[in-house]
Simulated assay, not measured.
Amino acid sequence: MTRLFNDPSTFTEDMIAGFAAAHAEHVREVPGGVVRAHRPARPKVAVLTGGGSGHYPAFCGVVGPGFADGSVIGNVFTSPSAAQARSVAVEADSGAGVLFMFGNYAGDVMNFGLAARQLTDEGIPAKTFAVTDDIASAPAEDTSKRRGIAGGFTVYKTASAAAEEGASLDEVVRVAEHTNARTRTLGVAFAGCTLPGHREPLFTVPEGRLGLGLGIHGEPGVSESDLATADELARTLVEGLLAERPEGAGSRVAVLLNGLGATKYEELYVLWGSVARLLAEAGLEPVRPEVGELVTSLDMAGCSLTLTWLDDELERLWLAPADSPAFRRGEVAAATGPAAAARDTPEPRAAAA
């Protein structure tokens, strides 16, 4: 149960205010979400993550050098509006265009798409990209209908690193497409999550059972089975992902073992021991695996496993430095400009010729 709140109707606004106050060195609150506290020293593509709140550290927790330039934050499990997306984009734009990145959900696709069209008409080139990593949500022959869940973290990271290197908007989109095509996720839930102000969870799982193929907005799994040992669960997750290994993929993989909010780190490490052994037996080599909470669902009990099959380009981008409130890797060069002062929303620019 989500116990700490003032007014459930302002839960997201209160969270954003507290988050920005706690991480003023990284982020600045703007209407609709947050942007980096410091503007880039030179124009770069602004990568904006987005979606409903309730998933921390996705999406706002990865705003910072080497990762996202901003985050558009909707109410809990609710798509942000097009107005919110446009507002954050105007604040984050540094002159090289904007890429909105989000999970493949109808509201997000519609609202971010509308914002991108508005921005482009105003002279700010903008594109969208929807992640489709959840193998349980649609068959392999219909991947465009798959949801985006924890695998979005890897897609956001590589695309953001490409933007940090100075890649063009089209190139950043290409990296996102390439990463997404090589990313697969499968998750399980042991118990549902509860929205702020509610007393009952969005779904329940019978005692001693687990739901396979959950969503991250409180959607139950697509099937149920008996709650297994860590070894048995690891085998279910690994075998499910290996069955969808991309054609021509190599042996090096980025791996995320993601806790959904109420599964403790100690439990995840028990499970990781089994996962690591099975990956080795399958001839796969994890590259800087991440075990912990990356894309949560409030207080849901459960976890997911993500594999991204790397090539030389994706491995470089996966390992590139980043410095954000929730994710740090290596040392980011001091390449940012002055602190970003609050700006009035500009008048719409003339459409590009």
Rank of each mutant, 00 (worst) to 15 (best):
V90I: 15
T12A: 03
T158G: 12
E285N: 08
E266L: 14
C60E: 07
E91W: 09
E122N: 02
R174H: 04
E239L: 13
F112S: 02
G74S: 05
S168L: 14
H26A: 02
S297L: 09
A191E: 01
G97N: 06
P31N: 03
G107I: 04
T158F: 12
F11C: 00
T194R: 01
E293K: 10
G273C: 01
P321K: 00
V63H: 02
F153H: 11
G261P: 02
R316V: 03
E219G: 08
A333E: 07
A159V: 05
E13D: 13
C303A: 12
W318P: 06
S94Q: 03
T236W: 14
L257G: 10
A20I: 04
R36S: 04
T12F: 03
W309Q: 07
G50K: 01
A276C: 07
G50V: 03
P286G: 00
P43Q: 00
S9T: 08
V255P: 06
Y265K: 12
A339H: 14
L233C: 13
A138R: 03
G261M: 04
G64S: 03
A234H: 09
G302V: 08
G211D: 11
A282K: 00
L212E: 13
A96F: 02
A20K: 00
V332G: 01
A341E: 13
E165K: 05
V332T: 04
G74E: 05
D133H: 06
A138S: 11
E315I: 08
L48R: 07
F129R: 03
L114P: 12
A262I: 10
G302H: 08
A150D: 13
L278G: 05
P80H: 05
G148T: 00
A181N: 11
S223A: 14
L114V: 14
R235F: 13
T194P: 00
K264Q: 15
L284S: 02
L4N: 09
G187T: 07
A22H: 08
Y269L: 15
E244Y: 13
L268Q: 02
A92M: 00
M101D: 10
V255Y: 11
G330Q: 00
A322Q: 07
A24Y: 10
